[in-house]
Every structure is written in structure tokens, then in C-alpha cells.
């Protein structure tokens, strides 16, 4: 069975991803560059400063794309800790395990399957309808959101949408532009030399600011409509790759639409209305035939949700 997500959209989407990924991975062009690199010309560019204090990282971090996966990981951990300051974790081994098996399987089918320390999922003990994804792949889903999912495919849709935000680095893009100038100047001093105490203090302040930029957008204001649409597109592609019907994304949004309270402080506040997302997706997702859900899939979902 094949699920079709409009080919034109798919191609545009892939184009966007490869553009966005160019800085991080620089796949083919980089390889050709390396292969054809002339060693002597490379050596001639080496700047021979005296001593070991050389600004190798002078370029520092100018945009969100310049963070290494390691730095993205440390940003993500603190964002995750702040989400958990606001929402209590739901401490239930079975549900946590089920959400992680499903979520990690989905993440592996994304365009960013490897993050610094992998994808990890946790249910939040809240009736709010919400889900969050930190840079580097800590993903949170509320019990209220679980309640909107009628089957495993719909839960897969929610998790795939969040993986989409990670893959597209939406969290990092919430960092205010001025912030890069702020810590760029400290990181420009990045050398083999250790930072001074005041430089470390400055770096920690910049870190706090960075985290605050991300949590303000993620928890309070929400991403732009175009980011949400892009995450939906990624979700549809990922779902097709794993074998879930991407129309589950639409049925899940319909269920959410019915449950969301207008003016609520949760998903309703931080996301475009489900109906507008449904309209967009319905035009683009078609299925060749109705999927049949194997019994085992339906059963494991029911069992996990019973205890949730």
C-alpha cells in the first residue's frame, strides 16, 4: 500500500530540507569539495599565528545552523527541564515505554535520525492538549493530547509532527538574532585557552537568554503558521515511510478541533486552528485505499492507553 503526499509538495519539501541541512551536513557538495581539494593550496591558507591562541572559531556562531549537535543537545536539555518545571511528568513505565518505542521508530524514519544523544519521549501529567519538542529531540506529549488520539496512527501523527520540529530545527530558529552577536563575541575567543571567569559568566547569561527565547516561543507564543505547516508536511512524509496512513494526521486534528476550547491556554493558543491545518493537508494527502489496522497494533494501543 502506498500513501501519496503530493509529489510536487514532497519535492519542494525535500528541497527545503536539503537547503536547511546544507550548513549542518553539506552532503554532496562538501564531499566533492574535499575530494578535489588540493592539499598544497589548503596548507597555504593555514594561518600561522605565534603561540596557541588562534581564533580558529572566529566565525563562531552566526546563525542557528552553526550550533554543533553537542551544543544543540545542551540547549535541548535545559529547555526540557523548563518544560518539566511547568508540567509534571506522568510516571508510568508502560506508557512511557510504548510512546518511546513508537516515537523512536518514527524518529529513525525522519531526515534527522541521529541527534547528539538520540530522541526520547515522555508523557506529561496534564489535561491540557499539548506537545513539545526541544532541540536535539526531547519530546513531550500531555495526557490530554493522548486522549485526542483514537489509534496508534493518530499518536504517530502527533509524534511525527514533533519530530518534524526537531528535524527542521524550529526551536533553534526561535533564538533572537541579536543573541548571536552577544555570544558570538565570546565564542569568537574560543581557543585552546580556557575562558576567564567573566567570559564564562557572560556565556551562561547568553545561554539563559537563548533558552528563554526558545521557551517563550515554544510554550507561550507558538511557532509561525509556516513552521507548523512544514512540521505537518514532514510528519506526513515520515508516516508514509513507516507505513502509517498520513490521513491519521487529519483525523487526529479533527478530534483535537472538537476538544479544544477556543481561547484556551494550550495548543489552541500556540497553534494555527486545526481546521486550517486540515484544509491544507486534505488537499495534499490522498490514499490509494483504506488501511486495515492489524489487530496487534490496535491491541497494543488500547492496552497502553488503558493505563494512561
Amino acid at each position: 500500500m502506498k500513501y501519496i503526499f503530493s509529489r510536487r509538495d514532497f519535492l519542494q519539501h525535500v528541497g527545503k530540507i536539503s537547503l536547511a541541512g546544507a550548513g549542518a551536513y553539506g552532503l554532496t557538495s562538501m564531499l566533492h569539495g574535499c575530494i578535489s581539494a588540493d592539499i598544497s593550496s589548503t596548507l597555504s591558507q593555514v594561518s600561522r599565528h605565534s603561540g596557541s591562541i588562534i581564533n580558529v572559531a572566529k566565525a563562531g556562531i552566526k546563525t542557528f545552523d552553526d550550533f554543533t549537535p553537542e551544543q544543540e543537545y545542551y540547549i535541548g536539555r535545559t529547555v526540557g527541564a523548563l518544560i518539566l518545571e511547568k508540567y509534571k511528568p506522568y510516571d508510568n513505565t508502560e506508557v512511557t515505554r510504548y510512546v518511546n518505542i513508537l516515537g523512536q521508530t518514527i524518529a529513525r524514519a525522519s531526515d534527522l535520525p541521529e541527534t547528539f544523544n538520540g530522541y526520547h519521549f515522555l508523557v506529561l501529567d496534564s489535561n491540557e492538549i499539548n506537545a513539545f519538542a526541544t532541540p536535539s529531540g526531547l519530546i513531550f506529549i500531555t495526557r490530554g493530547m493522548l486522549g485526542c488520539c483514537a489509534d496508534e496512527g493518530e499518536l504517530a501523527a502527533v509524534l511525527a509532527h514533533e519530530v518534524g520540529h526537531v528535524q527542521l530545527k524550529h526551536g533553534l530558529q526561535a533564538i533572537k538574532k541579536g543573541r548571536f552577536t552577544e555570544f558570538g563575541s565570546i565564542l569568537a575567543m574560543e581557543t585552546t585557552k580556557a575562558l576567564t571567569d567573566s567570559e564564562v559568566a557572560q556565556l551562561v547569561e547568553s545561554f539563559e537568554g537563548t533558552i528563554s527565547d526558545i521557551t517563550t516561543t515554544m510554550i507561550n507564543n507558538g511557532y509561525s503558521r509556516s513552521f507548523e505547516v512544514d512540521a505537518d508536511k514532514s510528519a506526513a512524509i515520515i508516516m508514509g515511510r513507516v507505513g502509517y496512513n498520513p490521513t491519521s494526521l487529519i483525523t487526529m486534528l479533527e478530534a483535537m478541533d472538537a476538544k479544544l476550547q477556543p481561547g484556551g491556554r494550550d495548543f489552541a493558543k500556540t497553534h494555527p486552528s486545526p481546521s486550517s491545518r486540515i484544509n491544507y493537508l486534505a488537499k495534499r494527502i490522498t490514499t490509494e485505499q483504506d488501511p486495515e489496522t492489524p489487530d496487534a497494533r490496535a491491541r497494543r494501543f488500547r492496552e497502553a492507553m488503558k493505563i494512561s
Binding site: F67, Q71, Y74, R77, V200, V204, F207, E208, I211
Partner: peptide, 10 residues
């Protein structure tokens, strides 16, 4: 940059 030490200080 943003590393384990920065997290500790945070």
C-alpha cells in the same frame, strides 16, 4: 560554547 560546564553553572 554551550556545554556541560555551562549547564552546571546554569
Amino acid at each position: 560554547g554551550f556545554n556541560e560546564q555551562v549547564e552546571k553553572d546554569f
